[in-house]
Design a protein around this nucleic acid. Structure first.
Length: 268
DNA sequence: TGACCCCTGGCC
DNA sequence: GGCCAGGGGTCA
């Protein structure tokens, strides 16, 4: 999402929006001005912000929109209007077209005045963003530590901590050597501290490694799995060589190393 | 908390 | 043809 935010900031920042279109799809479900509101967008970029997985985009016209990418959403810049699964388009003064592309239609766009975006309930309810405010062991425990739910599930609860998804939650737990099924409130101060570190390092690593023009999703042709643990079940752990195992938590896969991330705290 | 739903595509 | 997939919402 941060890569998507930077892309939009770069593209819209150097060329104004002179026209817009939106297909009639469920992307525009939810509140606000809907697809008609989106199609009316014009002007110079005034803000390109992000809270967790939600992008907040505003223009000097006072118009704005919120964008959530779901699982397969993507903002891309093209020279023309031909783009598979393009659901919405911003036409820029330089002749290029910024498309919102989303095959599965799990993403969402809502149009609202630029100034009210963060007061929308869906945005206001979000927990702290670990990229904007790097977590410490203490802050993380304050955000998640009262919960009995498995730490992996707690990490993905956007109202507790906003921005980590399935991949980065699994990556952080592997880096921190914490079993994903541990109840959040059973973590020790040392573990909270390791986890905070792991989140900070994981995000920095992902952004440094993948800051390109577009988001690259794992399954795209020609891309190797760039993650340390995610989707590596059955392979040897990259740290200890133990066979990576697979759990299912809250309907999501969790890859973990049973040796590095033991279910019970070691007594050592 | 788990089951199911929303969608389409890729892989076996 | 069946199963799986980054997200989130709803229901019992």
């Amino acid at each position: 999402m941060e890569i998507a935010r930077r892309s939009l900031e770069r593209w819209l920042g150097r060329s104004d929006v002179v026209g817009a279109e939106a297909e009639r799809t469920r992307i525009f479900r939810g509140g606000g001005g809907g697809r008609k509101g989106f199609a009316a967008i014009r002007g110079k970029l005034a803000r390109a912000d992000r809270r967790g997985k939600v992008l907040l985009i505003g223009f000097d016209s006072g118009q704005g929109f919120l964008s959530h990418l779901g699982m397969t959403g993507k903002w891309v810049r093209r020279e023309g209007v031909a783009e598979p699964y393009s659901r919405a388009r911003l036409h820029l003064a330089d002749g290029s077209v910024v498309h919102y592309r989303d095959p599965r239609l799990f993403g969402r766009i809502e149009t609202h005045p630029a100034g009210v975006l963060e007061s929308l309930p869906a945005v206001a309810a979000l927990g702290p963003d670990p990229w904007l405010r790097p977590p410490t062991g203490r802050s993380l425990r304050e955000a998640l530590g009262s919960s009995r739910v498995p730490i992996k599930v707690a990490l993905m609860d956007q109202n507790r901590l906003a921005g980590l998804g399935n991949i980065h939650a699994a990556e952080a737990l592997w880096r921190a050597k914490i079993h994903p099924g541990r109840p959040a409130r059973s973590l020790t101060p040392a573990e909270w501290s390791r986890l905070a570190n792991a989140i900070r390092r994981g995000l920095a690593y992902a952004l440094a490694a993948e800051d390109s023009e577009e988001i690259a999703y794992v399954e795209e042709p020609g891309t190797e799995n760039p993650f340390r643990i995610y989707a590596r079940a059955g392979e040897p752990c990259r740290r200890c060589g133990t066979r990576v195992r697979l759990l299912r938590q809250a309907g999501r896969r969790t890859d973990f190393c049973p040796h590095c991330q033991p279910a019970r705290r070691s007594s050592r």
